[in-house]
Amino acid sequence: MFREGPATTASPGKASLDTRYGLLGALLIAPTVLVFCAVIVYPLISAIYLGLFSIYTPTMEGEWVGMDNYRRLLASGEFWRSLLNNVIWTVGTLALQVIFGILVALMLHRNLVFRAFARSLVLFPYFLSTVVAVLVWRWLFNDLYGVLNHLLMWAGIVDMPVDWLGTMPNAMVSLILVGAWKYFPFVVIAVLARLQSIPDELYEAASIDGAGAWGRFVDVTLPQLRDVLIVVVLLRTIWDFKEFDLIYLLTGGGPIIGTQTLPLMVYKEAFALNQMGGASAVAVLMMLIMLLFMILYLSRARD
């Protein structure tokens, strides 16, 4: 860190070059830092600050209440129920995304007629707007004219249309399935990219050792995928945990608060109940939970 005197005198040009480079580096990062401060740090600090007030959203006026918002939240069943829902949704949809993602990636890695077209079709749900995905699924789920119910009735699996989104546990199951459908291609992309870079020699060596298809998968493929999966799971956990659009548009958190996750609770507090302070407090708690998760996960993954 500290440069000793003689070294500086020995190469005066290098020192000034270092300083100049440092300045240039700072200059290049400056726009990023500015934008971060303006659109992320400032709103973040105001969220923490607002959490200490009781504020009526339309006027944005209110009074200091200290930790009252937090006390109220932690004592309310609704916060804990939303957290539980959040965990159920995240774990459920993530598990399906990863399992299904790996399987489909393995499938698409093999020789398949029209493979490029098949890949495009599979990856497409990920790039689809959430709004579009939800609309399409709501139309599929429709009670009177939805094709899904009619297929199931035609196949004799059910004899009455199923209420996919309005009752529990159907609503949570539907949500998890639609989430998995929408986001598993992300896992496919990552795994597929990694599969393509596994050297064939590894498989050949395993074959020579007498490993079958399953053995090769367990001994060669899975260990090679480990690093990718660690990052994929981290990213998807964060994104799924804070998912708003999909849940809000598909079930709105209902029935009752059966599928209400923390982001929906923030929105409800802020705009339905017009309590900006409470909303900010939920958001801050949510952030703390995610931070805790990330620290634990990263320290575990490093081992």
Binding site: Y42, K242, P263, M287
Partner: peptide, 12 residues
């Protein structure tokens, strides 16, 4: 900043 839920930032 990845962790920040959009709903937190939207009003500020």
């Amino acid at each position: 900043t990845y962790l920040l839920p959009s709903v937190v930032l939207v009003i500020p």
